[in-house]
Nucleic acid binder design. Structure first.
Lengths: 175, 175
DNA sequence: TGACATAAGTTGAAGCATCAAGTAATGTGG
DNA sequence: CCACATTACTTGATGCTTCAACTTATGTCA
């Protein structure tokens, strides 16, 4: 086995399921967020990552890296979030070419009210289906694949502080 | 553990990685297909599923189920594929309200020339990173999650073909 | 049979993502 | 210190996806 480009039967089976999950899971999560908060998974993640930063600001490119997106995509999305009043953009005092995005009070409020429902959906769709071994399998496998997708590790989930959950009331939102 | 909507640390870690993979993996696969064949992952899958059918035809709704999509999405995509000459649509003789999509010879040729490069990319990004245990972990975990996403099992990867028996394989993933 | 519900598909508009191009600020080599 | 490359970001066009109608055909049941 493991010759040529083709997949053997086990691999084929694993791949088809993975592909199905990659289609259905984002759709399901987007549906919940859209229904309950009028947000995309991506725009929610953008707000959530800003909310975990000490001063609720990040340069656009740093934010892009934490949400695994291109700068272009982020720029469009932040423009929309800005129109909603959840984010503002200001030129950085430190360097003339960086713009920092800042989560407004309204934006923080939005994250706080959206987070529990989203986390519950993640739990329902993923973790309720897995026992402890399943969770660690998932962590393992995704870590291995991430290593392939992003060998440099520049974009990798969760660059921000992990050890200390901010306030008791504001647990890391992303789920 | 496992109380309330919130995720514990292990779950949080697993989820963030999963989210990153869900973002980056489809993007990477789309990029390869777009570059080498001018196809989307979704349009490729559509052609591929048709190619696995004995007479290279399927009713639109059956096709939609096998590629995990809405009928609307499929309709738009098939319209484009039809314009490229890879698919045709004809009213079914059996029922006046079904349309069957048929893969043309050119379409079959397109699938055949596209498949190896795509399979190689899937191998490179996923299976080269996993040993045999990893592959079976992946199969297990995705099966468990699929069970949540689509309890009815109506849409499930791979209704056609391959491994025969209806698998009794939807227990909590262990592995 | 006739009335109504449901199923199968299509379509157009609106939103979001991607791509290519453009601007402006900042390093960097000669 | 001046050209040139690079970095950080924005913008507009294009294309794909979704959503809400809409059409047409088929079941259902009185």
């Amino acid at each position: 086995m493991h010759e040529g480009p083709w997949l053997d039967d086990d691999e084929q089976r694993a791949w088809r399921r993975t592909a199905a999950v990659m289609t259905l899971l984002p759709a399901a999560l987007d549906a919940q967020l859209q229904r309950d908060a009028g947000l995309t998974q991506f725009s929610y993640l953008t707000l959530a990552m800003l909310s975990e930063t000490p001063d609720r600001t990040l340069p656009m490119s740093a934010l892009a890296a934490t949400v695994n997106s291109s700068l272009s995509r982020l720029s469009h999305v932040v423009a929309r979030l800005e129109q909603q009043g959840w984010v503002t953009r200001e030129p950085s005092p430190e360097s003339g070419r960086v713009t920092v995005a800042r989560l407004t009070d309204a934006g923080l409020e939005k994250v706080r009210e959206t987070a529990p429902g989203h986390a519950a959906e993640v739990r329902r769709l993923i973790f309720d289906a897995l026992d402890d071994d399943g969770v660690s399998s998932l962590a393992c496998v995704t870590a291995a694949i991430l290593g392939r997708l992003d060998p440099a590790g520049g974009m990798r989930a969760n660059p921000l502080s992990r050890e200390a959950p901010p306030e008791p009331d504001a647990r890391p939102a992303t789920g």
